[in-house]
Amino acid sequence: MPTPHKVYYPFISPFDPCKPIVAKTYSTPPHLYMQMQPPNLAQFTPHEALRAGTLWKVLYDPYFGPYEKLRKEDSSHD
C-alpha cells in the first residue's frame, strides 16, 4: 500500500529569518497509484459511502488540518 504522504527536506540556510520547517510534506492520495480501477474492489456500505465521499475503500483518504482534533469516527472506516 503506498503512503498517502511524502516527505522532503529542503535546504536550510543559517541566515533564514524564520524558524525553519525541517521536513516538508505533500499529499499523494491513493488514486495516483491505481491506473484503471480493477473490478470487485472492497466497498463501503451505502451509508458509510455517503459520509466518506467514495464508495471504494481504497480511494478513501481523509485529510485533517493541524488545528482540528482527529475524530475517531472519521478514521475508523477501515
Binding site: P29, P30, H31, M34, Q35, M36, Q37, R51, A52, G53, T54, W56, L59, Y60, D61, P62, Y63, F64, G65, P66, Y67, E68, K69, R71, D74
Partner: peptide, 29 residues
C-alpha cells in the same frame, strides 16, 4: 482545512476533497 479550526466545516471540506480524488481517478481512466 489547514487554516480552519472548525471540525464541522472541515468535515464537509474533507468530503469535497475526497470527491476531487474520485473525479481525478475517473478522468485518468
Amino acid at each position: 482545512i489547514n487554516m480552519s479550526d472548525d471540525p464541522d466545516l472541515n468535515d464537509g471540506l474533507r468530503f469535497l476533497r475526497e470527491r476531487e480524488i474520485v473525479h481525478s481517478q475517473r478522468f485518468r481512466e
